[in-house]
Amino acid sequence: MSLINDIEIINRVIEGDKEAFSQIVKKYQNMVFKYVYYQFNNYDEALDITQDIFITVMEALQSFRQESKFSTWLYSIMVNHCKNYRKKMNRYSTVSLKVMRGEDEVDLQLQDYRENPAEKVVNEDSIRIIKEEIEKLPDDFKDILTLRDIDGLSYNEISEILGINLSNVKVRIHRGREYLKNRLHARGLI
């Protein structure tokens, strides 16, 4: 049902009813935003990237050949966009927000006046730690664990989105989970 609806909407957009695209955005914006947010662990960055992803999707809609589910196609654009963004950001040097206090180097505390969305979650500490650890994961593990364990995609869908074969998907999931489990164990979370 969802697939038929998506394709109907897309056909309408391609035929010129651009307004119909807002239905697609509304349907997938949470999913896209969360994926991006867990990749970069930065709310503002995630907003900008999510916006860019939807613009890319709308402009590339003509090239969607409807051979796969729309969501799979959207996921692959999203994953590639995040990869490219990460590469782009790696090219720029970052400024450390650390200050010297005596002989110690400590994080510069910046006041964030925005409402922290994570406050709404019951187990704040666990969520904070898991987010930190996801952010520290190597990119390959970060992609695959977000798709598999957060978004709940099947191995086949992941294979299609990332363009790798099923056995590679399995291997990456095993290694990623093992890596993360060890990290969470070291942080005393499990």
Binding site: P117, I127, I134, I150
Partner: peptide, 22 residues
């Protein structure tokens, strides 16, 4: 470990509506 990851799916994050701006 996996259930902690999965719990992020239900995390409530307030986001603006992207449709109009897109």
């Amino acid at each position: 470990c996996i259930s902690l990851l999965s719990s992020l799916k239900n995390e409530c994050i307030a986001i603006p509506d992207f449709s109009e701006r897109t």
